[in-house]
Simulated assay, not measured.
Amino acid sequence: MTESYTPPKIWTWDTENGGKWASLNRPIAGATHDKALPVGTHPFQLYSLATPNGVKVTVMFEELLAAGHAAEYDAWLIRIGDGDQFGSGFVEVNPNSKIPALMDRSGPEPVRVFESGAILMHLAEKFGAFLGRPEDRPELLSWLMWQMGSAPYLGGGFGHFYAYAPYPMEYPINRFAMETKRQLDVLNRHLEGREWMVGDGLTIADIAICPWYGRLVKGEAYDAGEFLSVHEYENVVAWADRFYARPAVQRGAMVNRTYGPPEMQLWERHDAADFETKTQDKVQAGE
């Protein structure tokens, strides 16, 4: 957009616009092609990619397993760059065509769950885990909803215009940088004197929020750490360090990951042993 841009009377879709991810976006829903989803042997079938929203769910599964719950899962890779999310099988699980999507096959009938926050709530309630104390539930739900409402300003707002837009645009970068820093300040103030977001232990509030904001303050999002002066948010940095020091979190962050060091990429996860035998460094070495 330039200073001389005037919106048309009626908007029409231009496939040439939109930046790096333009080919993935369209103004209509529904499937673009027929493609059935694979189904593994475990009670939970996850179809995802290691974006922050995807990492939330794989971390949740790995934390549940580490705590001794019967939460074995198959994690299938959905390559959104290839349009896998528009296959007919995926659309049946998530009509919104976004990752992650879950089929819970642990009961008499399969149950679909989509939207990462809904998946976290479903699993937490199913296993009675990572929900904190009953008296803390309103606070936990408030922070969970805060993340769901706030992160689009970080990812689709700041991240898009700072890292992915066709060219730098001063107004939206300034607008969303301001909002991102405001959100970091909200977290920083809340985490003063606290180890975790709610109560005295890890909850789904941490699992939902940290893959977005913890990743940002650790310099792993949009190459924007210096631009946003993330070191200023010392409480958020310390909280993120605690979160990512957990072995289950480290495992969860590897699942469905297709970027970074090969030893940190586990494209699909079907067994706990896959972390030792099927990371990309071993696959590439033919082990």
Rank of each mutant, 00 (worst) to 15 (best):
V198K: 02
D185T: 13
H231T: 03
D82T: 07
K278F: 14
G40A: 10
Y153L: 15
P134L: 01
K35F: 04
R137K: 14
V91N: 03
G219F: 02
H122C: 01
H190P: 08
A124I: 07
Y73R: 15
Y73D: 05
G128T: 02
T32I: 14
E139C: 09
P27C: 11
A253I: 00
R251P: 01
W76Y: 15
A124W: 09
F86K: 08
A221E: 08
I209Q: 01
K218W: 00
V57K: 05
E170R: 13
A101Y: 06
T2S: 15
M145Y: 15
Q280I: 06
V39C: 15
Q45R: 12
V198T: 07
H270D: 11
S97Q: 08
F158A: 10
H231M: 10
D223C: 13
P43K: 15
R112W: 09
R133Q: 14
W21N: 07
F114C: 00
Y213C: 03
R175Y: 11
H33Q: 05
V113R: 02
A272T: 08
A285W: 06
T277I: 11
R215M: 14
R79L: 03
S48D: 06
G132D: 02
R194L: 01
A272C: 02
E135H: 10
K278P: 11
A273K: 07
A224S: 15
L202N: 00
F158D: 12
H33E: 09
G193V: 04
G155D: 00
D136V: 10
F176E: 00
A31M: 00
R105H: 12
A71F: 09
V55Y: 06
Q45S: 13
P172H: 15
R26N: 00
G89V: 04
P262Q: 12
E179S: 04
N25V: 05
L191V: 05
D136L: 05
L154H: 12
I28C: 04
Y244Q: 04
V57L: 06
D34Y: 06
S23Q: 10
E232I: 03
E287P: 05
M60N: 06
G225S: 10
G19H: 13
E125I: 03
F130S: 01
M1A: 12
Y73T: 06
V93P: 06
N235D: 10
L131S: 15
V230T: 08
G260V: 07
P134Q: 03
F158L: 09
A29N: 04
G260K: 13
R79T: 07
Y171S: 01
P134S: 01
N256A: 12
W146P: 02
P38I: 15
V111Q: 13
T180H: 06
F114S: 00
I10V: 03
N188P: 03
M169H: 15
P261F: 03
K126E: 14
S142M: 09
W21V: 04
M148I: 10
C210G: 02
Y171G: 05
P166T: 12
R215H: 06
H270L: 05
Q265Y: 12
T41L: 11
L191H: 02
G54K: 13
G201L: 07
D271A: 13
W21K: 07
E263D: 13
A71Q: 09
N188V: 12
G159H: 04
E226R: 13
E92A: 02
P108I: 06
E3L: 14
S88D: 05
H42L: 12
R242L: 01
Y162R: 10
